[in-house]
């Protein structure tokens, strides 16, 4: 049986109290409230009524919910691997000894550092039918013969969202991977050069395997973020055309603003469970062990 000093317990409690109060009131209690609310019919101006699983039964037969679940899953399956792939290229560039290294790092950080809602606005202009950069460039190099109405068809809107998301989040992946890359001892590479391993061999036999832990961490961070995506879609496509790009967050949001809190809560709970499973995997794989303390 471990004993604790009374003085220690008292001091640590006081030091941690603000953290507890804030996270409790603005993260944990709200989440629990949403869980409880999902068992109620809670529509604004109407009486709240306990309905047990009725909201969840509705979900099962709600094609809008299934569509947004499908979109959310396809979106992360397409965008996250792309981000990891580009992230590796970015990392190699960031790690290479070139002049103006600091400048390049600042440029790479910028897309990540700006608000997603603002980046959505930048891309909205780029995708503009008549004076957007995307159509202009594609017409110039003759990939297309006439301008594309990017945000008007389901498929092109999806492509547009993926590109904008990849632009915004690849820098983050690159930074996480860079830390992993710099942890690889240089001696391994010297030995490989002596053994006449060429660049590609060095990359596939040394860099990639040793980068694996960092890749897994980036993968899981990105998965959690991609699953709850809201800002970018809200501004760029508003979930359209015809609900084709509605993510789970956006679908829940639409019910919140119409005042149907109960049903919106049940959608949020499903999203919460998906992210929660992802974060458990992350904490397991990320080797968060007691030894950090």
């Amino acid at each position: 049986m471990k004993t604790y000093y009374k003085e220690d317990l008292k001091t640590s409690f006081i030091f941690l109290l603000p953290v507890f109060i804030l996270t409790l009131f603005f993260i944990f209690i709200p989440v629990i409230a949403t869980f409880i609310n999902s068992f109620f019919k809670d529509i604004i101006f109407l009486n709240k009524r306990f309905v047990l699983f009725q909201n969840y039964f509705y979900l099962l037969s709600d094609s809008g919910f299934w569509n947004s679940l499908k979109f959310t899953i396809i979106f992360f399956i397409v965008s996250v691997p792309l981000e990891i792939f580009l992230g590796i290229i970015f990392t190699l560039v960031l790690n290479y000894e070139i002049p103006y290294k600091g400048f390049i790092r600042v440029c790479v950080l910028l897309p990540w550092a700006i608000p997603a809602a603002i980046s959505a606005r930048l891309w909205e202009l780029i995708y503009n039918y008549s004076y957007g950069l995307a159509n202009f460039l594609l017409l110039k190099i003759r990939i297309i013969n006439e301008p594309i109405n990017w945000l008007e068809t389901g498929f092109s809107a999806f492509v547009a969202l993926v590109i904008a998301d990849v632009w915004k989040t690849t820098p983050f992946v690159a930074i996480i991977l860079l830390a992993g890359l710099q942890a690889i001892p240089k001696e391994i590479y010297y030995q490989a050069v002596i053994d006449r391993a060429n660049f590609l061999q060095r990359f596939f036999k040394i860099t990639l395997p040793l980068l694996k832990p960092a890749i897994i961490i980036a993968l899981l961070f990105r998965t959690i973020d991609a699953v709850r995506i809201f800002d970018l879609i809200y501004v760029l496509t508003k979930g359209g055309p015809g609900g084709a790009t509605t993510s789970l967050s956006l679908y829940a949001y639409k019910y919140y603003i119409t005042g149907d809190f109960g049903y919106a809560s049940s959608i949020s709970v499903i999203l919460f469970i998906i992210s929660f499973i992802a974060s458990i995997i992350y904490l397991r794989v990320g080797k968060f062990r007691q030894e950090v303390l």
Binding site: Y4, F26, A33, S249, Q290
Partner: peptide, 28 residues
């Protein structure tokens, strides 16, 4: 400082940053 459930508390707080924001806005 030394106190019980230290590591669980830390993990619990860290995990909270991964919650989707949409799951708290109703209450907020």
């Amino acid at each position: 400082l030394d106190f019980p459930f230290k590591f669980s508390i830390l993990l619990f707080i860290l995990a909270s940053s991964m919650f989707p924001q949409i799951s708290v806005i109703g209450f907020l």
